[in-house]
């Protein structure tokens, strides 16, 4: 099949038909990659919701008669041959993205100092990179009670941005619908027909896919700020999952076990609950060495392997 030629922020690339604008941009890498809060390449059906990946299609192809220019969600819009896309080169996109960040924050508690996710929160990073420096919202925020999802996971809807990633995880790992969304609009809530989803061996992954501090690991909650911990790559022979994890250590103790995230903040592999919640002794693991953390991340203040900032040009503040 012949390839489609796409131009993103003046850079040309050829991709297979069916590729989304986002994936074409990721192929180029660097600053032209739009931020994503809801899309997750490993979760079928995800994307389209947060709108932080909006880009401007300045020109579509001759085949696509829809009126352009137009802002579209890059994660769920396939490229057309000859498409011209603007991301950071479009002032309109920069403005729209500020607006999206503002929307994501108006009902967010903004209490990062007491949130467990601080330091590894995609919303924090997004706001820092793309948001406004002041807020215009003065109304009361919508609040919810904390809910325990089983013994190990806590849901705090106040922080949820309704990205639906956890819903897709639950749908994918269980095969029957156990976790969904209740109610509508800004009162929508993540719901769980609790016991079912928790019984699944892979339920803990909903913590790792959550871009914010809405789903947190109760075995870790408030034990430490993430930047005081030492992230170490480690693995073990596990019959259920790949057994490749990150151990978050403090002194001799393993405070937390998570999956390994790639440069887009996505898990490389889903890990099982046994690895995540049960294996908290150093002797459970074969330690590979310190995990590389981007220079720009607060977590790297504890990092002893310096990463050259010049290499760190992908515009992403997350963990690599």
């Amino acid at each position: 099949m012949s390839l489609y030629k796409v131009t993103i922020d003046t850079i040309e690339i050829e991709v297979e038909p069916g590729t989304t604008i986002l994936n074409a941009a990721r192929r180029i890498g660097g600053k032209v990659v739009p931020p994503t809060m809801c899309f997750y390449s490993k979760l079928k059906g995800s994307g389209g919701k947060c709108r932080s990946c909006l880009v401007k299609v300045a020109q579509s192809s001759e085949k696509d008669p829809r009126p352009m220019p137009k802002l579209v969600a890059s994660c769920s819009t396939p490229v057309q041959d000859g498409m011209v896309v603007e991301n950071i080169t479009s002032p309109e996109v920069v403005e729209a993205r500020k607006a999206i960040v503002e929307f994501l924050l108006i009902n967010h508690p903004l209490d990062c100092p007491v949130c467990d996710q601080a330091g590894e929160c995609d919303l924090q990073n997004l706001t820092y990179e793309h948001g406004l420096s002041s807020q215009r919202y003065e109304e009361e925020r919508i609040t919810f009670e904390r809910i325990d999802i089983g013994e190990k996971i806590q849901l705090h809807m106040n922080r949820c941005i309704l990205c639906y990633r956890c819903v897709y995880v639950a749908d994918q790992i269980t095969g029957k619908r156990v976790h969904g969304v209740l109610y509508r609009g800004d009162h929508a809530e993540i719901s769980t027909y609790v016991s079912n989803v928790i019984e699944n061996d892979f339920s803990g992954n909903i913590i790792d896919v959550c871009p914010v501090g809405a789903l947190t690991d109760k075995t870790f909650r408030f034990k430490s700020r993430v930047w005081f911990t030492k992230p170490m790559n480690a693995h073990r022979n596990c019959s259920k999952c790949a057994g490749e994890v990150v151990l978050w250590e403090s002194g001799e103790d393993i405070l937390r076990v998570t999956g390994r995230k790639d440069q887009y903040g996505e898990l490389e592999h889903f890990i099982c609950n046994e690895c995540r919640f049960e294996k908290k002794k150093t002797s459970d693991w074969i330690i590979e060495g310190p995990r590389k953390i981007k220079h720009s991340s607060v977590i790297s203040q504890n990092n002893y392997e310096y990463i050259n900032p010049a290499e760190n040009n992908d515009g992403n503040l997350g963990i690599t």
């Binding site: 389209g48 919701k49 947060c50 709108r51 932080s52 607006a99 999206i100 929307f103 994501l104 108006i106 009902n107 941005i161 309704l162 639906y164 969304v181 109610y183 509508r184 609009g185 800004d186 009162h187 929508a188």
Partner: peptide
């Protein structure tokens, strides 16, 4: 419906 952030919020 609350799916996308601009309309929901």
């Amino acid at each position: 419906c609350g799916q996308c952030s601009p309309c929901r919020e």
